[in-house]
Write a protein that binds this DNA or RNA. Sequence first.
DNA 1: CTAACTATATCACATTGTGATTTAAATTCC
DNA 2: GGAATTTAAATCACAATGTGATATAGTTAG
Lengths: 126, 126
Amino acid sequence: MRRFQRFSEQGARALRITPQQHQLLLGVAGFTGRGWATITELAEFLQGRHNAVVGLVQRAAQRGLVRKAQGERDRRFVKVRLTSKGHAILEKISRKNIAELRALQFEIMKTPQPPPRELPAAAGAE
Amino acid sequence: MRRFQRFSEQGARALRITPQQHQLLLGVAGFTGRGWATITELAEFLQGRHNAVVGLVQRAAQRGLVRKAQGERDRRFVKVRLTSKGHAILEKISRKNIAELRALQFEIMKTPQPPPRELPAAAGAE
DNA sequence: CTAACTATATCACATTGTGATTTAAATTCC
DNA sequence: GGAATTTAAATCACAATGTGATATAGTTAG
């Protein structure tokens, strides 16, 4: 269920990337089908305000995951692209996630039902 | 789809509550079926580390949404409960969300297909 | 009683998000 | 053309969130 989401976040952190930055890389790589995206498009993809995305992109650029360039026709736009480093990291995370998906699928085939959540020993009367 | 999630977050903000705090209230109210929850349980529910939850609960307590009490049997535990104010706010948000769900359902019945995402005018050659 | 364990707290710090305002470029309208 | 409007992005001060490391109690095991 949402256990994969959790794993996915951990996978990103294992490569010293925050979940948000991972999402950013995904958006830049795939959201537009163009290889680059504008701040506003990324804000739409990430369901956030544009100024939050400006900061996110700045930090990702500092880490060399992403680079910015001005639009040529319309110089108000910013084109955000992956760097080769960004590409590499995104691929590593994706590979890990695919592996985890396979493991989950395997597990589902094996186990009839995961045990229900364990209620902790009562902490005082209530 | 995930549009409801987005709405849900906005609904929380309209009542001056962050999405995280809304999730916290939900967890306290329902996760254990007991009316109260420990920090560790909330960390499980919120998929976060316990120290992140400590802070979240502290801020929510400052706002009077939640109150803390020591466990009696085992005084290491903390019981987090909703205050009446917390209850009231959680209900308001829930009512709003239910209304939105109905609206969405209605919309789905009406519209054959939402238009595909609009590609922005190209910002320079590429 | 000591050692190990458990639940929570605290700390310093980076990241993320928000509302308000600003800058710069492009477009519209006269 | 030039003023007004619109648009995309940046900036600011600030609050909220999350992280790793470490600390402090309380509890249990030996």
